[in-house]
């Protein structure tokens, strides 16, 4: 019994040391964290690479701490998962191209322009293109034309883009700014008085675990549906969410990685190609609405594919 255990222990140690002795990986993924969402991205990325004929040895996965301990890595492509990893890679002097994942377009632009760049950098954003968001609103609520945006100091910079896209689609847009250090409620109240639907835009100063209760309770009371950017919001009580799953992003990153490994240059930063729509069936019923997430996703995909 004891020898049996010892055998497995030694075998485990051997396997753990194996990557150190392996050849240089083609791709190094630096992940801000090892948790479920990040692992899903990595797993989908690995699957896609395997389809392209690459093995697990071609892919190294490191946390920022592990990266610091491992000098002399010379991959052909760096992939950053999340903001923390992105900042570390932007500070590295490696000449290899970098693909950043799990950042919003706005965060990516802010962070990447802040750093001196030694190498080409691109990204697959985490947030959805504005027109896709507005198309979803039109599909889900053909009667509701007045869109409300509750913005904070960061997200307010996206307001003109939302306004232009809304005008193009024949929607009207009203926005309200939550001032720094001010309670969110007056801005929300002002906004809800003239809005048929509230479109949530990621901004931790406005939408966070502490503010969500006020937002969801107030909107529900006024029967204004909330369209959010993450399934956690739908679970919490938002009516709808439009988002890309970590697997969808990992898959898209895999495709980009394959082209880079085949010698193509890094493509321009892009929005996620694939996405999901989630519906909270209980809130749908409570608001007297009728929505089907499968149908909404399919219809939105068709619009997205259209030239």
């Amino acid at each position: 019994m004891f020898f049996c255990r010892l055998f497995w222990l030694l075998l485990g140690l051997l396997l753990a040391c194996a990557p150190v002795r392996a050849a240089q990986p083609s791709i190094v993924v630096v992940t801000s964290e090892r948790s479920a969402s990040y692992d899903e991205v990595i797993s989908a990325l690995g699957d896609k690479l395997a389809q392209g004929g690459y093995s697990a040895a071609d892919l190294a996965i490191l946390t920022p701490d592990e990266l610091r301990k491992q000098a002399g890595l010379l991959p052909r492509l760096w992939i950053a998962l999340g903001t923390a990893a992105a900042q570390i890679l932007l500070n590295s002097e490696s000449k290899a191209p970098q693909l950043h994942l799990l950042q919003t377009r706005h965060s990516f632009l802010q962070i990447s322009t802040r750093h001196r760049q030694y190498s080409p950098v691109s990204a697959i954003f985490l947030d959805q293109p504005i027109t896709r968001q507005l198309h979803l609103l039109r599909l889900a609520f053909p009667e509701r034309k007045r869109i409300g945006l509750l913005l904070g100091p960061v997200s307010q910079m996206q307001e003109p883009a939302f306004r232009n896209a809304a005008t193009d689609l024949g929607l009207s847009l009203d926005s309200s700014l939550v001032e720094r250090g001010e309670s969110l409620y007056p801005s929300l109240q002002r906004l809800l008085d003239g809005s048929d639907v509230l479109l949530a835009v990621a901004d931790p100063a406005v939408y966070n675990a502490n503010t969500l209760q006020n937002i969801l309770l107030s909107t529900f009371r006024m029967r204004v549906p909330v369209v959010a950017f993450s399934p956690a919001y739908v679970k919490a009580g938002a009516l709808l969410a439009l988002y890309s799953t970590p697997a969808q992003i990992g898959n898209q990153a895999g495709k980009v990685a394959l082209t880079v490994l085949q010698g193509s240059p890094l493509p321009a930063p892009q929005y996620p190609a694939d996405f999901m729509v989630s519906v909270n069936a209980h809130v749908t019923r409570a608001l007297g609405l009728s929505l089907n997430e499968v149908e909404l996703t399919a219809r939105l995909r068709r619009i997205d594919m259209a030239p």
């Binding site: 801000s32 969402s37 998962l81 999340g82 903001t83 799990l102 950042q103 919003t104 706005h106 965060s107 802010q110 962070i111 985490l126 947030d127 904070g152 100091p153 960061v154 997200s155 720094r180 250090g181 990621a202 901004d203 931790p204 100063a205 939408y207 966070n208 675990a209 969500l212 209760q213 969801l216 309770l217 529900f220 950017f229 993450s230 956690a232 919001y233 679970k235 919490a236 009580g237 988002y243 970590p246 909270n280 209980h282 809130v283 409570a286």
Partner: peptide, 26 residues
């Protein structure tokens, strides 16, 4: 309140949220 100038990160998308419109609240 948290720092208002913070940029959104992946935590805003993947983080858990409190269940607000819970079974008894709906």
């Amino acid at each position: 309140a948290a720092d208002e100038r913070t940029l959104p990160t992946e935590k805003d998308f993947f983080g858990e949220m409190p269940i607000v419109l819970s079974v008894s609240r709906l």
